[in-house]
Design a protein around this nucleic acid. Structure first.
Lengths: 168, 168
DNA sequence: ATAAACTTCCAATAATCTTTGAAAGTTTAT
DNA sequence: ATAAACTTTCAAAGATTATTGGAAGTTTAT
C-alpha cells in the first residue's frame, strides 16, 4: 500500500473509533494525522489534508494542546504556528488516561459520595438496601481510581510492568 | 433526605454521567433505578417512574439484558415480564469492562493490525516512521488489553487484589 | 499608524444520536 | 378461533453535538 493510502486509512479509521471513545471525529482524525507525521504541520496543512474548516481545525488543535498531545512550535522568520505530536506512546497514554479519569471517574465519585452522605440515617430495609448499593458503588469507584493511578505509574516503573506480566 | 429523593437524584445524576460514558441517558437511568430497587420491576413500573416511552424502555431493557446487567423474571399466574438487576458490583464491573473492551479496544486492535501488515515493505524514512508508530500503537493496545483481562481477574483473585494494593 | 498575515470566536447549519408512540406482532386463556 | 394482555418494531420528531465559515481580534513588520 502507498504511504498516503496508509495515512488516509488510518486517519479515517481513527476518526470512526474516536467517536466511540467520546472524542469528536475531527479531533481523532487530526491527532491520527499528526501521529503519523514526522514533521510539524500548520493549520493550513491540516485543513488541506483533512478537508476540514479553519474554525474546526483551530478548536481541535487547541483541545489537543490542552491535553498535551501536541505541542506548538514556531519557526524563525515565519509567523505561522506549527504543531507537532507527542510521539512517545506512554506519554500519550498517560495523558488520555488522565483526561478520562477527569471526565468519567471523578464526577461519578463525587455524585455517589454526596448521595451516600444523605443516607446516613437509613432505617427501613429499602433505605438500607440503597445505602448498601451506594457504599459498594463507592468502593468500586475507588478501586477503579486506584487502578487508573496504577496505570499511570506503569510507564515509569519497569518493575511494576514485570509484576503485571507475571501475575496476569 | 427522603428515600424517593435519593432515588431520583441518583437516577438523574447517573443519566447525566452515562452520556459521558457513551451510554444513552435512558439506559443509564433505567439501570440506576434498578440498581437501587430491591424488587423486580415491570416495563410499566419503569415507564411510570422515569416518564419514558414504552418503546424506549423496551429497547433499554433489551440492551441491559444483553449486557447481563439485568435479568428477566416471571411471576406465577402473571403474564407480564419483570426485570431485576444484578446487584453484585464485581459482576456489574466485569460485564461493563467486557462490553467496553468489545466496543473500544478490539476494533482499534484490528485496525492497527491490518494497517501494520501493509507497511511491511517500508523503505524510506517516512514509511519507517509510520511503521514504527503503528508498531508502538499495536503494542500499547496489547497492553491495554492485558490490563483489561487483569481487571476481569481481580474479582476472583484475592491475592492479586492484595498485590495490587501493595504495589500501588 | 497601517496593513498584511495570521488566529480566534461564535452564530448558523449540518450531522448524529436518542426518544417517542402508534401500529404490528406475539402469546396465553378460554 | 378469538380476544385480551402484553411485547416489539420502526419511521418520524426531538435533542444534542459537531462543523462550518465569515467576522472580529491579534500580532508583527514597516
Amino acid at each position: 500500500m502507498k504511504t498516503d493510502e496508509v495515512k488516509t486509512q488510518f486517519v479515517q479509521a481513527w476518526g470512526v473509533l474516536g467517536t466511540s471513545w467520546g472524542i469528536s471525529r475531527s479531533t481523532a482524525q487530526v491527532h491520527a494525522l499528526m501521529l503519523l507525521s514526522k514533521t510539524e504541520l500548520s493549520t493550513e496543512d491540516i485543513m488541506q489534508q483533512l478537508q476540514l474548516s479553519r474554525g474546526n481545525v483551530n478548536m481541535v488543535l487547541r483541545e489537543l494542546v490542552n491535553w498535551n498531545l501536541i505541542y506548538k512550535q514556531t519557526k524563525p522568520g515565519d509567523r505561522k504556528e506549527y504543531f507537532i505530536a507527542e510521539h512517545d506512546i506512554w506519554q500519550i497514554a498517560t495523558r488520555i488516561i488522565t483526561e478520562r479519569k477527569k471526565r468519567e471517574i471523578m464526577p461519578a465519585k463525587q455524585t455517589v459520595k454526596v448521595l451516600l452522605n444523605s443516607t446516613n440515617d437509613a432505617k427501613d430495609s429499602e433505605q438500607l438496601h440503597i445505602k448498601n448499593t451506594l457504599t459498594e458503588l463507592h468502593s468500586f469507584i475507588e478501586q477503579m481510581d486506584t487502578m487508573t493511578e496504577l496505570l499511570l505509574k506503569v510507564e515509569k516503573n519497569a518493575l511494576l510492568k514485570n509484576v503485571l506480566k507475571m501475575i496476569s
